[in-house]
Design a protein around this nucleic acid. Structure first.
Lengths: 146, 146
DNA sequence: TCCTTTTAGATAGCATGCTATATATACTTG
DNA sequence: CAAGTATATATAGCATGCTATCTAAAAGGA
């Protein structure tokens, strides 16, 4: 009996993640946004003027990933980089008016995707699902720390 | 109160998927494999000589994704493409000896990752987790069909 | 002060996955 | 059989994410 993809947590999780991404893409592409920009925007909507370093600390992404995504966001007119007042190595990331205007429609789109994805779950199933994911994430993180 | 990443199913699922991928990468990179090659190898280990079309039907991936991954696998000496006996458009994908030799260590690596990720879950939690993921996947798939 | 080390960010290069499109072969229909 | 359609694969081009490496500025120590 061979390894069955659909009994492999890693495979199923990857598949589910791709479906989430596709569903979100559908809804935010018309706003001119991509899925990778979303976490950064969420952070900046609640806390503007962060440095790249601070963004990296708050999001579970590598520095290079954030730098590249910021480049695309700058190109697309969503952010501007302003020199840091005291540290010449750093820059503060600020949102443009355009990016601020997207907060409501974009978060609504993300909430719609979450609602649709979880709609067959009872409140307790949903709670359990989040708890289980947190456990799995914790287990993988401690493995990776090895 | 703003949108909280960690209460967003999409975000958490994406994060979990990246951690699974990283844990698997750690273990199969020494074998010369990447995560994207894994589903294709699994399929071919159990059913060799499939066409690209058949692979696409069995894996939830786009045709172009499979074509590109097969190109890398050919480059890396894992597969060979042989002309289809009757259909001149198709090719049959065959494993090399090298790829066949990787079946055991690679599936063991994947099983190790799954075991580690789920180790804090009881049997019933684990069962429930898979059931919930299947429901979420189904809900997203039916949304995307719209 | 000068030198070393650390830190912030940029960049190169790659894999994975996508959409859109091109190409070549097969099929179908008049 | 010719003409048009459908199918199998290839390719272009992009976003997201990674590791590894480079550069420039800051911090610390002799």
């Amino acid at each position: 009996m061979s390894f069955d993809r659909n009994s492999s947590a890693g495979y199923v999780v990857n598949h589910m993640a791709r479906l989430f991404a596709e569903a979100l893409t559908r809804r935010i592409q018309p706003l001119g946004l991509g899925t990778g920009q979303f976490p950064i925007l969420l952070q900046l909507w609640s806390e503007e003027g962060l440095t790249q370093k601070q963004l990296v600390e708050r999001l579970d992404l590598e520095q290079a990933t954030v730098a590249n995504t910021l480049n695309r966001m700058e190109r697309d007119g969503l952010i501007v980089r302003k020199p840091h007042p005291v540290d010449g190595r750093s820059q503060c990331i600020h949102l443009t008016r355009k990016a601020r205007a997207l907060e409501k429609p974009a978060t609504e789109a993300a909430m719609a995707v979450n609602r649709i994805a979880l709609k067959t779950l009872s409140a307790s199933d949903e709670k359990r699902f989040f708890e289980t994911m947190a456990q799995v994430i914790g287990a993988l993180q401690s493995d990776l720390k090895t």
